[in-house]
Amino acid sequence: MKKVLAAILILSIMFLLFIPINTLSAAQPHKVNTKIHTYNGQKYVQITGGNQQVKDKINKILKSHAVKASQENVELKKQQNYFYRQTTSETKYNNNQRLSIVFKDYYYKGGVHGYEEATTYNFDLKTGSQLFLNNIAKTNKQSVNLFDGIESGLRVKKEVFDDKIRNFPLSKKSSFYYYNDGIVIIFDPYQVGPYVAGFIEVKVPYTKIQSNNTMPFLDLTKDSVKYLKQGKLPGFKEISFGRTLKQVSEALNSKVRESYYESGGLFWIFEGWDYASFNFSEESGRLAYVYLSSRAFPMKGFDDIEKILGKGTRFESTEYEGEFVLTYQFDNVYLEFTSESPKVSVNAIKISKR
């Protein structure tokens, strides 16, 4: 028996020795290893293994972060010799043909303490392409699910500011990294919590992002214009201008939670609908205005909207400093998107019929 086992072992070793090297490596052709390098005191990650072109592409991007940090550090020291920028880097995920690298930069420009920010680089190891949040949340519904998942995660963290639980920054370029079952969103100090809380992270599993959530949202598509011209709200089933408070309540399957006055009149908020306010004309009692927060239409900037609806009218608000507006008119229905900058995601939408 021992002789038989020995013979099998010898044959197995000989078989492995004669397998071509490229056949062995083909099992994981995109597997890479990572290592920390230093450029003028700035830490950055470089990869080895995998496809040569992909490796060069990724390494160039990662090193450029350290080079930029070094250059800015020199400029800061020219202003004051105790000013500085220091960057560190770590590999957060390297599996399933995905790579996540997180840089954390500390800036000091005087005062009690400096400030910190995270920059993430996520790559497809097959192509070397960078991956962003819109590569994960690919549809309007998935973007809403992602927003909802982040909100749920922030809600259970004691250090988060109350007003940021529903009003947090989120765009295609927001910082995140992968884990086996989903992604982790990273918020910088002050973005959603105090400086002492440091970086605040929220896990959102793929199952949440891809869930069949029935919560209505502003589902803008190429076909939305015809619905808007008919006075209907795209994505909001059975909600259209001209409906009464009772009809809207029945369509939402919800009771009125509260109301408030604003410049446009009296607005109503329904239970479970914190992200929408409905205004009914004082004369007719019919739906005239709808205000939506970013939760109903997350991760979309002015450029994204114009790709869907065509070119709109952009201007800086004369009513609120630092607010930018993108407007459309479809017959007697008006859309108004507001943002802190034309380059970042919208934070509010107003839809009205005049």
Rank of each mutant, 00 (worst) to 15 (best):
S143W: 02
F147T: 01
F147Q: 06
F147V: 01
F147A: 04
D148Q: 12
D148A: 12
G149K: 06
G149W: 02
I150T: 04
E151C: 03
S152W: 00
G153F: 06
R155A: 14
V156F: 05
V156W: 04
V156L: 09
K157A: 07
K158M: 05
E159V: 14
V160D: 07
F161G: 02
F161A: 06
D163N: 12
D163I: 06
I165P: 04
R166G: 11
N167T: 08
N167S: 12
F168S: 03
P169Q: 03
L170Q: 03
S171K: 03
K172W: 05
K172E: 15
K172A: 13
K173W: 07
K173H: 12
S175K: 09
F176G: 07
F176I: 02
F176H: 09
Y179A: 01
D181W: 02
D181H: 12
G182L: 01
I183E: 02
I185C: 03
F187C: 01
P189R: 03
P189H: 12
Y190N: 10
Y190F: 11
Y190M: 09
G193F: 11
Y195R: 03
Y195I: 01
V196M: 08
V196S: 15
V196N: 10
V196K: 11
V196L: 12
E201G: 04
V202M: 02
V204Q: 05
V204E: 06
P205G: 04
T207D: 13
T207I: 03
K208S: 13
I209V: 04
I209L: 01
I209W: 08
S211P: 00
S211L: 02
N213V: 02
N213D: 13
M215N: 14
M215S: 15
P216H: 01
P216Q: 00
F217A: 00
F217R: 00
F217S: 00
L218P: 01
D219C: 02
T221S: 15
K222C: 04
S224M: 05
K226E: 12
K226W: 12
K226N: 10
L228A: 05
L228C: 03
G231E: 03
L233E: 04
L233P: 02
G235F: 10
E238W: 09
E238G: 07
I239M: 09
S240G: 12
G242E: 13
R243K: 14
R243A: 15
T244C: 07
V248R: 08
E250K: 15
L252P: 03
S254L: 14
S254E: 10
K255Q: 14
R257M: 14
R257L: 14
E258T: 15
S259G: 11
S259D: 13
